[in-house]
Design a protein around this nucleic acid. Structure first.
Lengths: 199, 199
DNA sequence: GCGGAAAAAGCACGGCCGTTCTATGAATGG
DNA sequence: CCATTCATAGAACGGCCGTGCTTTTTCCGC
């Protein structure tokens, strides 16, 4: 009962990387099996269906994301440093070798936005958690006095994520070498605007 | 030579709408033919390959976008009104019935960002033109004195498009009823920050 | 080290894919 | 009005897809 779960996890790791390149729909069981040196049916046995595979890929990606982006940021001081750490962490995540094809959630968002089903539900929940995480970090920054009291933290989280999406577009599609600089400038402007009134 | 080009255009219209739902990859020749009541081979004859179909779909979508979004904005007064018109036009575009599945360019951007080829090249060019259009509108706003002289207009265009991408995500994936309000607030903040120093 | 269980492979299926070739029908120009 | 071109349909192909079923191999507790 141990060997099975091990390969199961190995499959998911490879699947996440592959899916970031070819998308969730483009992730085929045959292709994934070949990449792993397994038989198609042997791999299929781990998941009862392709839909289940897609859900588990998203869950696995969420787990990696939490480990790689959210948890390190939680180690940073409460307030603005943590808000900035979440932003930096996401930039690093989108650049990670694990994701040769860029953030898998951004790719999945475009694929699934009109495809009702368990995969979409899983993605939406994951993204909601992420936005809540961003908003909560901003809320703490308000409490700490780094951000102004009247700040709409959900709006801030929304705007912060929009900058990330803009970065993804500029970097991965447009191959803009200035993508990261542009994103940082946009985010800095957001943070500055969130600061308490100076005078 | 007339009948052919007519159906050719009809095919592309339907293809654009369908592709906005299922994506460029998901757009199958068989499915498209059925939607139009044509035979698969009869439709295929209009395009020498699926890659060519994808390119022409993107070109057709760009033409519609230019007609529906850019041209009306060019009728607005130079400066901030035109900048705002481009933003409003995009919001309307993303909501249009033509695009049941949301902006086809956003969907294609995620699909093609790691798929080199003519389709990707076509999309990149279209997006570059769009960003240039946004930047140029901002540049005019600087000349008109609506925006401050030192404004980085390319950065402004980048940030403006990021807001649009954030809107698309919030609206189409998250189904956030506040998506449009959030986007307008974010864009207003951008415009306000672009204004000349008040004092 | 053996026997049962779990994991993987092998094989076959129906289905849709893009693509090609051939035939037939309709539109068009002289 | 007729001949020619052009637009569409039909059938067939090899290929990959997801998915079951059966067999073989591998693992693991006793």
């Amino acid at each position: 009962m141990r060997k099975g779960e091990l390969t199961h996890q190995t499959i998911l790791e490879t699947a996440v990387r592959l899916a970031s390149r070819v998308g969730l729909q483009g992730l085929s069981i045959g292709g994934l099996a070949e990449e792993l040196g397994l038989s198609k049916s042997g791999l299929f046995a781990h998941f009862k269906s392709k839909a289940e595979l897609q859900v588990q890929v998203l869950e696995a990606a969420t787990a990696v994301f939490t480990e790689r982006v959210i948890r390190p940021a939680l180690g940073k001081p409460r307030g603005e440093p943590r808000v900035r750490a979440l932003f930096d962490g996401w930039l690093t995540w989108d650049r990670d070798k694990i994701l040769e094809g860029g953030c898998i959630f951004v790719a999945a968002a475009a694929e699934l936005d009109d495809a009702p089903g368990p995969a979409r539900d899983t993605l939406v929940q994951s993204q909601r958690d992420w936005l809540d995480c961003l908003a909560q970090a901003a809320r703490i920054a308000v409490v700490e006095g780094h951000f102004r009291k009247a700040l709409d933290v959900e709006q801030f989280a929304h705007d912060q994520y929009a900058v990330m999406l803009g970065f993804h577009h500029a970097k991965r599609l447009m191959r803009d070498p200035q993508a990261e600089a542009r994103a940082r400038r946009a985010f800095d402007a957001l943070v500055t605007a969130a600061h308490p009134p100076t005078s």
